[in-house]
Amino acid sequence: MRPAAAVMQFRPVELKREGEKLLRLYLTLEGDTIARVRITGDFFVYPEEAIETIEASLEGMKREEEELIRRIETLIRSRGIQLVGISAETIAIAVVMAGGG
């Protein structure tokens, strides 16, 4: 039996990129895998409930920026989600930063 991977909840990362709103991202890792992400801040997402879809879609992924961006952008296109004042890239960067990348 393998030992259970350590669960680590990181301090939130605040990220404010040019032309965007403030993102405050909470991350929990299980080993090197994303267990939970909370994307909070003063941005806009249409429809609003899609934020939970985006968060859920990142669970189980590794903290690899390009992969995360591709995952979010695919979701945005397939579900017709609009991000305003935030971007897939910003979310991905914050996920990497939050885990100490």
């Binding site: 939130p12 405050r24 994307i39 909070t40 801040g41 003063d42 941005f43 997402v45 609003e48």
Partner: peptide
């Protein structure tokens, strides 16, 4: 607060 914000933050 906005929809995506956390009260305590």
């Amino acid at each position: 607060i906005g929809y995506f914000q956390v009260r305590e933050d």
